[in-house]
Design a protein around this nucleic acid. Sequence first.
DNA 1: ATTATCTTTAACTATATGGTTAAGAATAAC
DNA 2: GTTATTCTTAACCATATAGTTAAAGATAAT
Lengths: 207, 207
Amino acid sequence: MAIKNVKEQIIKAATKEFLASGLEGARMQAIADKAGINKALLHYYFESKEKLYFIVLKAQFSDMIAGLLQTFGSEEDFEPWLKHLIRTVLKEITSRPHFSRFMLWELNAQKKQLPRLFQELLKERMQGSFMQKIQAKLDQTAAAAYPAEQFLLNVLSLCIYPGLARPLLEQVLGKELFASKDFITAREEDIFQLIKYGILERKRAEI
Amino acid sequence: MAIKNVKEQIIKAATKEFLASGLEGARMQAIADKAGINKALLHYYFESKEKLYFIVLKAQFSDMIAGLLQTFGSEEDFEPWLKHLIRTVLKEITSRPHFSRFMLWELNAQKKQLPRLFQELLKERMQGSFMQKIQAKLDQTAAAAYPAEQFLLNVLSLCIYPGLARPLLEQVLGKELFASKDFITAREEDIFQLIKYGILERKRAEI
DNA sequence: ATTATCTTTAACTATATGGTTAAGAATAAC
DNA sequence: GTTATTCTTAACCATATAGTTAAAGATAAT
């Protein structure tokens, strides 16, 4: 049976197309081409563009959330936990080069449906309060009472933005930078140090 | 003569529409509506969607770059300079809520034209090497030899990402957070502290 | 072999949208 | 008052694209 194979190929192709071009920008013909089939067969398996779109999206959300939430809640001391966290976010982001870009764009364009879908999946996967866990981790350290929201913003910003703005930054910083293999590992270490010293040492200095 | 008035209104409307929806997603009818005129008059003043698009874009790029480059090159000591820099980036970003989002999306979609336009404007406005100035500033401090690229990435990430991901983050952190007036000022201070301690104290600790 | 399922081909419909056109109305310039 | 410019109306064209359809071919299941 070639069924599942083709369905899988369609989803794969559709994922690429939707993440690269959004719902409006995506072309059903392009999806069919990428999947190596024709439009008629595409509609034989999937009713409409919208249906296919939400199937793709749900899968993407789930994958992403799964990897992240697990790491956020892991039972480690602060420093190894932070390192682990940074590495995971960087890995999840770089392994899905178009996902965050897509999210930021599409969450604004399709403002009714996507936030709801996202919210549902978050609730489904998240047991207990997520922010409280982060706060608890912080409270084990010299940075006790440092707000978990700021912490989360810092980690996400530092990990996600560079990959997001890569095409832009390459114009300013030069094409070579991001291409270098060491860059991500160097970046990983730098983010760790920045947050460690930026939060812990600041608190120590304040006392 | 009502000419300039209408042209201005069209540009204003087009800017909104293009930044919100991109080149493909923007609708000429929507631009005409927003400008309070009809499609015929729109084409009476502007040949085509593409032409209008690039006029809008060039203006936006110029505005943005102007404000930023000035601050980056200002002659101040490190700490006031950093504070000034962070404040300016935050201001430029929050005053153009759709611009960075648009850039990240569209730079990828229209990959030939936009980077070239961006590059041209950067060269035009930038005298002397931009990164070298940043490095010079860093070298005045305890963080001498801290790479200017990492520094720039850190500042931009921390300032730009939260505004960018706001709709997403509000799902996780709650709607109230960003709405609060103090949030931006608190964020401004936190970014400053984070970079100051994260870079300077780290270097001191390493010695 | 026969049947059910999968797949292609190719023409077709419906709709949205960028852009045009021509006639005329309103407004300014002279 | 006459002319040139600005603006509206409303119909129109061309094109792109989501989706359909019908007929036939290929492949697997029985």
